[in-house]
Amino acid sequence: MTDTPAEVSDFSNLTCTNLMIRLKILLKKAPPHSTVDCIVRRDQRDTIDVPFSKTGYDVRIRKIDANRYRVSLKKKEQGLFP
């Protein structure tokens, strides 16, 4: 929940299932309008992208190194109009 790269959690050693669980916990605890950031592997990136996009999150992914990606998740704002 920070923009400082040094403080971004590195989840690249987690399995995909536990990564999902960890992110859901962090998102649940995150203050409104804040972003959850983490570093993941390529296969984890694929695991995160679709399920979170489908369930109301903005998912931003940036490659930072070979097989390392920075993922930012943020709850989508509810607009007045669809």
Binding site: N18, I21, R22, K24, I25, L27, K28
Partner: peptide, 13 residues
């Protein structure tokens, strides 16, 4: 993991 946090987070999936 705190199992209650896990349960709470995944509920509704």
């Amino acid at each position: 993991f705190n199992l209650q946090e896990v349960v709470d987070a995944v509920a509704g999936s």
